[in-house]
Design a protein around this nucleic acid. Structure first.
Lengths: 347, 347
DNA sequence: CTGAAAGCGCTTACAG
DNA sequence: CTGAAAGCGCTTACAG
């Protein structure tokens, strides 16, 4: 394989000049530049990443650190949980265009070897930037190691504001408000709400958004149920809300899995959706697209956030020590109206 | 960050000895080895991948080359096509255990810049092994470049036997035979078959397997329909087969998308599945798990094949020039019986 | 606008 | 069982 020396010899210049041309640096005569390009092309020369990384300050690597257990579970389940696929889609494109490589690294969240694992990743790979996904995005040890290594990082969907890095998250509260507004606009007045796992900040934000919208419309919530983001808890919530007398005409579950469970509960009770009750979810999961009827839900801008993260990291806009003003509530959630919501009492 | 020199100094040995210990090479006294380990641990030393790669013959990188257009489409569609997720699951685990890193590279199949793109990938990354997925797995230019670079490669689901590399594929014919046997065992005699895109070898293998089983049971196929692996063609095939008089009691579509289309056609015609007609697919796609009723299908051992591929590559068992005897029909397909098939004329 | 020298952090090939 | 030397293919820092 051709090296920088071969190209330099063929073009009749020094390797430094070849380096300048390959990196599109200034201060090379147009004619020289062309000669180098021609030599590189004829020799089919491509710079070696390891050498560039070792000699220089860039590795041309962007890594995503994802929770090992969760990710493996999702891959195994094959229920089409496509969070990671969306991250890959968003991050891969800008990386490719900039000559970077994107790789996914599994991290054993909250286990003994995690510190070693992450240290090794950082020292071995020396990535130019790291994208963190929940729950790693809030892991103090990982954040500390990242800062220690001086590696810029972007935190996707963080719960805690401390910990540095560029923080990118959807405005859960505004999104929940938006969905509630949608239900009210359809004519619903008695609306039930199923909360998620209380340990997650998103649960509280979504509930607050719901309550804000209800209050803004002068409505009292029909009923609240505390679930835990699982299908099973959605069934339970649905049963409780729908078996009473003054049952809500609409239920907003704060994630799709619970909404799907809720639909199952409605089916058990002989209720038809959306004729007897409208049901809305949150996440735009794969399952929401396969349910019958298809589920009205909220889509997080995962692809867009991952793309922004990669771009910011590549551009070097993320200082590893940025602590203030690096929080960005991504406004662009998308309400995805499908067939599980309609006007109350209507087919 | 600590380097090999720091460790050597602290342990009172040469860097060569540190290198030996870090790579678990023989010929180091147990006591020396321990001293080095202690020094490495106390300095939180982790070898730099770029330096290892540049100096040595290994990059500790395994790459999967996947079709850019197809992959982006799957990521975008979010219908839960989890082929790539299964590859990642299978390949990531052995890589992780062996200290390798796995990365996915998009390749613009059959476009002008492809040659440059792949050359660059090979020269820049110098991966120790490459896993190819369809349709890249049969791309002559990619195969030629791989051989030229001396990079070992594994071809997943190849259609053409030439092209070298370790070839791993499911025995489509045996699998189709297995599914047909299943339908016959349930009591079906008039069985329809929907073929896939004729340009793909898998279409022919699956059809042949079906016909073999039918012949072995002394049955004539009720009808054949040539589809193209799309949902739409499944609808068309279903309509044609199910609207006639002597309609089949079971239809075997050679992939899940067509089987799902076929189910939709049955629904249009007022037929209930599996009471009026049994329907079977092929792939165990995400959609097959979300359909109602859930689809009986065949599962390809993608995870297992990817794992085997990664292991073989890491172990250096794949010689880049292996041409004979490197073809392996993976026998372990799995028949996944679900609710869309039953005894004929039975609920 | 161009180049000579040094060095990044390791492994290889060899010597003892 | 251990180490000194050379070199992998680039970029950095500097000189001109």
């Amino acid at each position: 394989m051709a090296t920088i020396y071969d190209v330099a010899a063929q073009a009749g210049v020094s390797i430094k000049t070849v380096s300048r041309v390959m990196n599109a640096e200034p201060n090379v005569r147009a004619e020289t530049r062309e000669r180098v390009h021609a030599a590189a092309a004829s020799l089919n020369y491509h710079p070696n990443l390891s050498a560039r990384s070792l000699a220089g300050s860039k590795s041309y690597l962007i890594a995503a650190f994802v929770d090992a257990k969760l990710t493996i579970e999702h891959w195994r389940n094959e229920r089409g949980t496509d969070y990671l696929a969306r991250i890959q889609l968003g991050a891969t494109m800008p990386c490719r265009e900039a000559g970077y490589h994107f790789l996914v690294e599994l991290v054993d969240h909250n286990t003994a070897p995690m510190r070693q694992e992450v240290s090794n990743l950082l020292a071995a790979l020396k990535p130019d930037g790291v994208i963190l996904t929940p729950p790693i995005t809030d892991n103090d040890i990982v954040l500390e190691l990242l800062r220690g290594a001086g590696t810029p990082y972007v935190r996707l969907g963080p719960e805690q504001p401390d910990g540095g890095g560029l923080r990118l998250r959807m405005d859960d509260r505004a999104a929940a408000r938006g969905m509630t507004d949608h239900l009210v606009a359809l004519g619903h007045r008695r609306i039930g709400f199923i909360e998620g796992e209380q340990r997650y900040g998103s649960s509280h934000s979504r509930r607050d958004g719901f309550l804000e919208s209800m209050a803004a419309h002068g409505l009292k919530s029909a009923c609240m149920f505390v679930g835990d983001y699982t299908y099973q808890s959605g069934i339970e919530g649905g049963r409780e809300m729908l078996s009473g007398n003054a049952r809500p005409t609409a239920i907003f579950a704060s994630n799709d899995d619970m909404a799907l469970g809720c639909m199952a509960a409605a089916g058990e009770l002989g209720l038809e959706i959306p004729r007897d009750v409208s049901i809305a979810g949150f996440d735009d999961s794969t399952g929401s697209r396969f349910s019958r009827p298809q589920l009205t839900t909220l889509r997080q801008p995962i692809v867009e956030m991952a793309a922004l993260a990669a771009c910011a990291l590549i551009a070097g806009e993320v200082r590893p020590d940025c602590d203030e003003d690096a929080h960005f509530d991504f406004p662009s959630f998308t309400l995805v109206p499908r067939l599980s919501t309609a006007r109350p009492g209507k087919v």
